[in-house]
Simulated assay, not measured.
Amino acid sequence: MTGTAAGPVEINPWLRMGPCTPDDCVEPPAALAGPLHRVARLLAAVLVLLAGLSIALATRRAGTAWRAEITRTWARLLLRALGIRVRTTADVAFYTEPQPAPTAPNARSAPTAPGQGGALLVANHVSWLDPLVMAATVPSRPLAKREIGEWPLIRTLAAGSGVLFIDRERLSALPLAVATVTNALKAGDTVIAFPEGTTWCGRGMGEFRPAVFQAAIDAGAAVRPATLRYREGDSTSTRCCFVGDDSLLASLLRVTATRHLVAEVTLFAPVRLAPTGQRRHEARATLARIAEAQVRAGVVEHHEERAEQREERADACVPGRRREMAPLSP
């Protein structure tokens, strides 16, 4: 019996595999849209996409800031056509003088509002809708894998919105990808990245890979963590997730069949690393941990809060189930 020896495995910091699958994670909708409603949503989305082609062609030579604002409006229209409302909230420290993150003494906050100067905006990754949601929230340029640029329709839309294409398949292309993001940040652009490198269903998240954070360090730009959630009413929704072997068509049909979907984005205070003499790999790993901790706290806190609310409602509705009450004050 003969065999071949396995060669060295190249670990790619851009590519990861998450544990979520459609069968395990996708739940039935809280409210199902009717057939006519679903068709109307799909037709409206097609119309917005076609309009986007014309807009993309007209804005290819436009300035980055103006193009980002147009993309922001277009992304909101497309999400609305699909039945998704976008809601943005901000951590209190985002608009006041923020304090350094307690878990990282070598980090400092940068009190800058979205859209003022270049920044690396990083968030947890749930769905193919995420870049649209973030673009609808903050004028920005998303990262996308190079293969998307080979799709005729998507290529035109992406070019019009200022997408930065990176090669995620080859580890040797990593320095060029980091340099591309660095140049965009130095030019004053806000760049959207999803450092997990894969998608989760929204009830948890993976680790942030540090590679893209090197661009923020090289450009001297702030990192702005953001938590992204999809909700149906008061509950976390997994209807928008795009995980495992899910297909784009199946995910799209699932979204259009769900009523009352809300994409909620929470923006946290921007963070920069204070000079400490750390090595490059140590600095970017530290920055990744700081950003991940803020985003993870938002994901976990939100999910646990919604779970507690569901349990309280269940306690109130189940006959014969008694709830503990605080004793009355004398």
Rank of each mutant, 00 (worst) to 15 (best):
L77G: 10
A123S: 14
C20V: 00
G320A: 14
R296C: 01
G7T: 13
P13C: 05
S329H: 06
D246N: 00
A51R: 11
E324W: 15
T137H: 07
L36P: 00
A316F: 07
V318T: 15
R146A: 11
R168P: 03
Q309M: 12
L228V: 02
G83H: 07
G277W: 04
S172R: 07
A222V: 12
S251P: 01
A179P: 02
T266L: 05
R67H: 02
A226Y: 03
D234M: 00
R67K: 05
G118H: 10
R141V: 09
G52I: 07
V46F: 11
R141K: 12
R231P: 00
T64K: 08
A107M: 08
E169Y: 06
W200R: 12
E282R: 13
V243L: 03
R321N: 07
L328V: 09
C317D: 15
T236V: 15
V212G: 04
C201Y: 02
N106K: 06
V48K: 01
A144M: 13
M134F: 11
V299C: 05
A187N: 14
G83K: 05
A285G: 12
G63C: 12
P22Q: 04
A93T: 12
V48C: 07
Q116A: 15
L53E: 06
A257Y: 05
L82A: 15
R76A: 13
V271G: 04
P142W: 09
R203M: 11
A62Q: 08
E324F: 13
R254E: 11
L328G: 07
R87C: 15
A51H: 12
L267A: 01
R259G: 04
G117R: 09
L176P: 00
L171A: 14
V255C: 08
A250R: 07
P131W: 05
F213P: 06
G320C: 14
L228P: 01
V9Y: 11
A33M: 06
V9L: 13
A33V: 14
I11A: 13
G204F: 04
A274E: 04
D234N: 02
V262F: 03
D234A: 11
I154W: 11
L249E: 09
V92G: 13
A177C: 09
E10A: 12
R313D: 15
A219D: 05
G117P: 11
G7Q: 13
G160E: 11
T73H: 13
L32P: 01
E308V: 06
A44N: 05
V191C: 10
R41L: 04
R85P: 10
G162A: 12
A90E: 11
A44L: 12
I55M: 10
W151M: 06
